[in-house]
Computed example of a mutant assay.
Amino acid sequence: MKIALMDSGIGLLAATAAVRRLRPDADLVLSLDPDGMPWGPRTPEDLTERALAVAEAAAAHRPAALIVGCNTATVHALPALRARLEPEIPVIGTVPAIKPAAAGGGHLAIWATPATTGSPYQRNLIVDFANGVPVTEVPCHGLAEAVEHADEQAIDAAVAAAAALTPAEVTTVVLGCTHYELVGERIRAAVQRPVRPPLVLHGSAGAVAAQALRRLGEQPAPEAPATGTLTVLLSGREGALPAPALAYAEGRLLRSVSPAR
């Protein structure tokens, strides 16, 4: 079984690691776009064009499914990606975990990029899945960029700034950008109040990985032999994981895997 994942940068690491843990025997193809990143500031049309190119580079390796490991690309490019690749290759998008987070009750904060915060897309998700639950949208200025470059000081500053915008009564935080899952514990430490119950974090990686297996009619097999290979595509060129990826546990999990031949 071969599964491809795509993003402009290393935000796809969280979903990649989740797939690797569920199926150590799966061959993985990671398609990144260092020539075109970041995607966030691009127009929807330009972003869709870049996403299609990255997806087609992955599709050339004949995966059984493609995971869009990026919230922004899912918002703007998912219909075009599905029109281009399905039904031959199922395409699985990444949506913020607002629905399961809201099911727990309590005050909810959604950490997202400034472009996503307050957007019609996110507001519609709140109306659909968190109606009646107190919700605070928190714009995280510079956090995705800091995570992308593994800039420790910039990560600390961006997390602290977003934590300062998060109300003390918040019990649950939705990580609305895949990059944020790579620093989830740092976010938890920054938001957790000493006298409050343990903070609940909701990311999307585990659900996305499980959905990909369901679309393929496969079952999790975490006990399977770790024979899965790894192919990394950098704007269509075969290469290696970007160096900043190894700053995170998810990237180090993949480091020992041999490239596909």
Rank of each mutant, 00 (worst) to 15 (best):
N71Y: 00
L81A: 04
E137K: 01
V138P: 12
A73G: 05
I126G: 01
T113F: 12
L125P: 07
Y121K: 01
N131Q: 14
I92V: 15
L66R: 01
I98M: 12
T116P: 05
M37A: 11
V75N: 00
I92M: 09
I92C: 08
D128A: 14
G106W: 08
V75C: 00
V54E: 07
L85E: 04
V75M: 05
E49K: 00
E45W: 01
C70M: 02
M37S: 12
A59N: 08
P96W: 03
P120V: 07
W111V: 07
G40V: 10
A97I: 15
C70P: 00
G36F: 13
V138D: 10
I110L: 15
Y121S: 00
L78F: 13
P79V: 07
H61L: 12
V135L: 09
T48A: 09
V95A: 06
I126H: 04
T136L: 11
A101F: 15
T113G: 05
A58K: 07
A103F: 13
I98A: 10
P79N: 02
G132W: 10
I92L: 15
G36C: 05
G132N: 12
I89D: 14
A57P: 03
A77Y: 13
P114F: 04
R42V: 00
L108H: 09
G69V: 06
R82W: 04
G105M: 12
R84M: 07
D46S: 06
L32P: 06
A112N: 15
R50A: 05
L125A: 06
Y121R: 00
L108E: 11
P41C: 12
A101Y: 10
P79E: 05
V68M: 02
A112P: 15
E86G: 15
A101V: 11
V138L: 14
A80L: 02
A57Y: 01
L52C: 02
A65L: 01
Q122N: 10
T74H: 10
V54N: 14
P96E: 07
P134F: 08
N131L: 13
A83R: 14
I110A: 11
G93H: 11
E86N: 09
A109T: 03
I126F: 07
R50K: 04
G40Y: 01
R62F: 04
T117G: 10
A65P: 08
D33R: 00
E45L: 03
E88P: 01
Y121F: 08
Q122E: 14
P44A: 03
Y121C: 00
R123H: 05
G93W: 14
A59T: 10
C70T: 09
A77K: 12
G132S: 11
A59S: 12
